[in-house]
Computed example of a mutant assay.
Amino acid sequence: MVYRKCPTNVTFQEFLQFVVQSVKLGQTLDRHYAPIVSMCLPCQVNAKYLVKQETFAADTVSVLEDIGVEQNKLEVITSALHENRIENTIPGIVKTAYGRLRKIMNGSKMAETIWKSFQIQGYIPDAVDLPEPRFQSEDDYKNCKYFIDVVMETIKTHKMTSEKSKRQRQKVLVNAYRNIDRSLLDHLKEIYEIDITMFGYKELPPDEY
């Protein structure tokens, strides 16, 4: 297997191959994509609630209601999870990404990569490109605060309903898995088999949107 030398130019299939190969070599996977059972041993925890990242907001509110959190506090938390979710999360995501990517990318590539990630996550419509005329120089691209302002402005002027956002995320997922080798998918299922079974995920990759 041949990996690209540049870490900023890796295909989805190459990333999945890297995961499978790492497991075969007995290497520890990064916590962001390692099986949950390899980190928190859920079978040894008598958990009353399981909150999934995919349905984090709804699950969190449900848990808080069940344990009897006061209504005024619940309303504040619900607002942060729903109404103010974008304002509360986007700036922090961008700052973290800038801190890591600036070491391996120039400003324009960094902005383009983060912009694409927000489209994948359903924050920005996939038909709305990064407004390059807004960036007059490389310094503009490197300016984290300026980039955040452009992103927030775009999200507000091209609002997506939760349903549209969900469909866009699903479309990206379907297209990403469409050309992945069957043998590679089989290896991935073996690696994440317990997670899939315990937490109710679908075994087969998505095939419709």
Rank of each mutant, 00 (worst) to 15 (best):
Y3W: 05
I114L: 00
Y141D: 04
I120R: 14
T89F: 00
Q121K: 08
V172G: 06
E83S: 07
E163V: 06
P7R: 00
L50V: 15
R100F: 12
Q170A: 15
Y141T: 00
G200R: 11
R178H: 07
D139L: 14
I114H: 01
T78M: 00
L130F: 08
K189F: 09
P7H: 00
L173H: 06
L81I: 00
I180V: 12
H82R: 06
T28W: 12
A34I: 08
Q170D: 12
S137D: 04
S22C: 13
K116R: 07
S38I: 11
G26T: 03
N46M: 13
R85W: 01
T154I: 01
Q13H: 09
K171W: 07
F135Q: 05
I196T: 13
Q17H: 07
K116W: 07
Q136P: 00
Y209H: 15
L101H: 04
K103M: 07
V128Y: 02
K24N: 10
D195M: 08
M1W: 15
D181Y: 10
K166T: 03
D129Q: 14
F12E: 02
F118H: 01
R31H: 14
E153G: 08
I77K: 01
T161E: 03
Q44G: 11
L50A: 14
D149L: 05
T78P: 04
E190S: 10
R178L: 10
Q136H: 13
E65D: 05
P7A: 00
T55C: 08
I120F: 10
F56Y: 12
K189H: 11
S137A: 03
Q17R: 14
I196L: 12
V174Q: 12
A97T: 02
K202F: 15
C43H: 15
T60E: 03
I114F: 02
F12G: 04
K202N: 13
L25N: 14
S38E: 15
K202M: 15
E87K: 02
R100K: 13
E87D: 08
A34S: 11
E65M: 10
V63T: 07
I194D: 11
Q27H: 15
E208K: 15
L184A: 07
L64H: 03
R4S: 10
T161G: 06
F147G: 08
P205H: 08
E193N: 11
E203P: 12
N88P: 02
T60V: 07
P42S: 06
Y209L: 13
K142W: 03
L101T: 01
K164M: 14
Q13P: 09
V172F: 15
R134P: 11
K116M: 06
M152L: 03
Q71E: 12
V69P: 08
V69D: 01
A34R: 10
